[in-house]
């Protein structure tokens, strides 16, 4: 199939950047979206042009490295990661517009590559259970009701790709933050730090320059791992009780 690509090209952090058009004639519908970009990059390299930079690693939808906005939608038309999107989701002759995640907290480094280290700092603020190696009691000493374990797991499947931020009209990272709050908050091991965790993580989230959540729901709609919107409600619930209890 024939595809026209309009891709965001930006040489470096400080460069202005612009959309550049490329034509590809020999796209196979079984290619993944990133393989299609590989083909374009091979072509560009042979022409002596700078290939398009994009983040990617596992290419099986779990590492969270890849992610671009395709035709205005984070990760494109299917609810999956960009690496798991295939060209059969497009038609012959389509014009496909490819842009990086856009948020002040995710500055563009080059082309489609953005800096998502803000997510690491949100985790550093409290997205963990303090359990130094060697201190653990037997794994069976605290049973966890299956429903809690399952909900924790559902939230824990977040891959930290940042699509939620890219899709959010407020550029809020609430879904990412809430997923971790819900994962750890559902487990008995996460209780001692539950109140301080939510306060510290939300503060860090705000400090990083992400917007506030206005419950629009675009984040959950594009999330490749289907993190549910009610995790944000869980975060709000935990935040309110943490503030009310005053035990931070």
């Amino acid at each position: 199939m024939r595809i026209t690509l309009r891709v965001w090209r930006q040489k470096s952090r400080d460069d202005e950047g612009r959309m550049v058009t490329y034509e590809l004639d020999d796209v196979n519908e079984n290619m993944s979206f990133l393989e299609m970009l590989d083909v374009l990059n091979e072509k560009l390299t042979l022409q002596g042009e700078d290939p398009i930079a994009f983040d990617h690693d596992c290419r099986e939808g779990i590492c969270g490295a890849c992610g671009v906005v395709i035709n205005g939608v984070a990760h494109g038309p299917e609810v999956t990661t960009t690496c798991q999107l295939h060209m059969r989701s497009f038609k012959d002759g389509d014009v496909i517009e490819v842009e990086p995640w856009r948020a002040k907290a995710f500055p563009v480094i080059k082309d489609l590559v953005v800096d998502r280290s803000a997510f690491d700092r949100i985790i550093q603020a409290g997205g963990y259970i303090s359990a130094p190696t060697g201190t653990a009691p037997d794994a069976h000493s605290v049973p966890v009701p299956k429903a809690d374990a399952d909900r924790a797991f559902d939230a824990a499947t977040c891959i930290g790709c940042g699509a939620c931020v890219a899709a959010c009209p407020n550029a809020s990272a609430m879904l990412f933050t809430a997923a971790k709050i819900t994962h750890l908050g559902m487990l008995p091991q996460g209780q001692p730090e539950r109140a301080s965790r939510v306060v510290k993580m939300v503060n860090q989230h705000d400090e990083e320059g992400f917007g506030g959540c206005t419950n629009i729901g675009e984040c959950a709609a594009v999330c490749p791992k289907g993190i549910p919107l009610d995790t944000i409600s869980q975060l709000n619930n935990d935040l309110l009780s943490a503030l009310a209890s005053g035990k931070l």
């Binding site: 963990y128 653990a136 794994a139 069976h140 091991q189």
Partner: peptide, 20 residues
Amino acid sequence: EIIDQCVAQGVPFAREYGGL
């Protein structure tokens, strides 16, 4: 010891209805 350590860190391993 690995399993103990991971559970203490909050790794959500699959559980049965009894919670184990």
